[in-house]
């Protein structure tokens, strides 16, 4: 039903299915919108639960620049971004 409505009205998937939007600025900044929770926060690893999976960020000196109910910003030397 959702798929039909979104296809008919040409709505974006993120607003209909609450899918995450991931923005990466070079290898130093990363913004994830529509995230659900922080699963693991370590110096070199950050796991963030999103709708339908988990975003795994690997790097060095990872800091959370800010977070609120919709968005989280990660700063540091990002080496790898994986989806599981």
């Amino acid at each position: 039903m959702r798929t039909k409505i979104s296809d008919t009205l040409a709505l974006s998937k993120d607003s209909v299915y609450n899918l995450p939007i991931i923005t990466v600025v070079g290898s130093c900044e990363m913004y994830i919108e529509n995230y659900q929770s922080i699963v693991k926060y370590d110096k070199d690893l950050l796991k963030i639960r999103v709708q339908g999976g988990m975003v795994i960020i690997q790097g060095k000196n990872l800091d959370i620049e800010f977070f609120d109910s919709d968005e989280i910003a990660v700063k540091g030397c990002i080496e790898q971004v994986a989806w599981s």
Partner: peptide
Amino acid sequence: CRHRDILFWDIHW
């Protein structure tokens, strides 16, 4: 904190 709208920034591990 996120659920209760308590916001942190400049979080360093």
